[in-house]
């Protein structure tokens, strides 16, 4: 074992270096190219410029898309979290079709993105609802975030000590009071974390959105249209902006989530 350690350590270092290069060289390349003063996207690197960032935001479409994405994310996360919370609480009671709940719940995760997209396009088309941000994209986003919100909330709902609730009920509190005064304060951090998680999912959703958004744009749709319609030199700058926006949204969500799970379930936060 000791004799084998140093070649093993060497191989390990090489493997990790290759692995992380695979993941980070493309990101760094995009970052470098976003400052390249060249009319074609690519190498060689000429001189540094920030003009592409100016062009990326100049027409206001990116900003409009960003506003759309944030609005859509907030509304769909709110509806999705509310539905998931209600479902997670409801699932604690005795029910006839309990076994069928989870398969139905996870169906939107399992269905391929394009299938969901065209299924909803057909659905809206045949029902005569015109596509756009509201309500078609909102509906698709709520269905998309709902399973994840449920899977995040459900264990938390079950996680806390049910004897507290029972004590409240024994003391004569009505179910509504028990929920508002006991249950909700306990799960509030989890609900907030779930909301943010749902927001990030909605913010980054592309394929499903693409088929039902009509002529409007969210951030990923905007990038997709730029990439497929014209390979413009400012594309890397748009990519970097979107990457940073998504990253900060995800980071906020993640840190709220870890804090929430650290508070609620210390054991789950370790590992």
């Amino acid at each position: 074992m000791t004799a084998a350690r140093s070649p093993w350590a060497f191989a390990r270092t090489v493997y990790l270096a290759a692995f992380f290069s695979f993941f980070y060289v493309p990101i760094l390349t995009l970052f470098v190219l976003s400052f390249n003063d060249s009319p074609v996207m690519g190498f060689p690197f000429k001189t540094a410029t920030t003009q592409w960032y100016g062009e990326a935001v100049s027409d206001g479409v990116l900003l409009r898309a960003l506003i759309n994405s944030v609005q859509l994310g907030l509304v769909s996360a709110a509806i999705g979290t509310a539905l998931a919370l209600s479902a997670a609480i409801g699932l604690r009671y005795r029910l006839p079709f309990k076994k069928g709940v989870i398969p139905l719940m996870v169906l939107p995760i399992i269905l391929p993105g394009v299938v969901t997209g065209v299924v909803m396009l057909v659905f809206f088309g045949l029902s005569g609802v015109s596509t756009g941000l509201w309500p078609t994209t909102l509906i698709v986003h709520v269905s998309w975030v709902l399973p994840f919100a449920f899977l995040t909330l459900y264990p938390r709902i079950h996680g806390f000590d049910q004897t507290i609730e029972e004590a409240a009920m024994d003391l004569g509190a009505r179910p509504t009071t028990v929920f508002l005064r006991i249950v909700f304060p306990l799960i509030r951090p989890a609900v907030l974390a779930t909301f943010l998680f749902a927001f990030t999912l909605s913010f980054d959703e592309f394929v499903r959105t693409f088929f039902v958004i009509g002529s409007q744009r969210t951030v990923p749709v905007h990038l997709w249209i730029l990439v497929t319609e014209q390979v413009a030199p400012f594309l890397p700058a748009v990519g970097v902006i979107i990457m940073l926006a998504t990253l900060s949204v995800a980071a906020v969500g993640f840190f709220t989530m870890t804090r929430a799970s650290a508070g609620r379930a210390p054991r789950a936060a370790q590992q």
Partner: peptide, 14 residues
Amino acid sequence: WTSYVVRSFLWLPM
């Protein structure tokens, strides 16, 4: 954590 579409688009300039 970066955008899904960006992650695929990254390989064009590579």
